[in-house]
Amino acid sequence: MNEKILIADDEPYILHVLAIKLRNAGYRIVTAMDGEEALATGLAEEPDLIITDYQMPRLSGLELCREYNRQAGRTIPAMLITAREFDIDLNIIATGGIAVVMAKPFSPRQVVQTVERLLNENATTTARI
């Protein structure tokens, strides 16, 4: 069974661009347009990886990952894609199990490669790309 990825961003174009690219790469995709929706979707769909924006309505990307891991009782790899990469403190981000921080505008190809890597190895450190 192909891995399932949850993508959360309040900009529909990001969802579309990532969904198309990752679907073509063979993943199953679920999307959400805010943190709360993403948490509900995540708990219902049990994804293998989360790609999330940082600033979203109702629940930030970090809160989403922390909450998901807490409520689901397991930690899944996550990557943060944000336009405020310069404001991100890696130490804080690591508490949400977020392994990669990527600044917008991103290369969709690089996202796919990163997803592959994260799913194959269990990353233990947090890094910027």
Binding site: E11, P12, Y13
Partner: peptide
Amino acid sequence: NEADNALQSLSTNLASR
């Protein structure tokens, strides 16, 4: 509506890029 919003978001973004 959702498709419309998505199209708007995509178009706006495309224009900026």
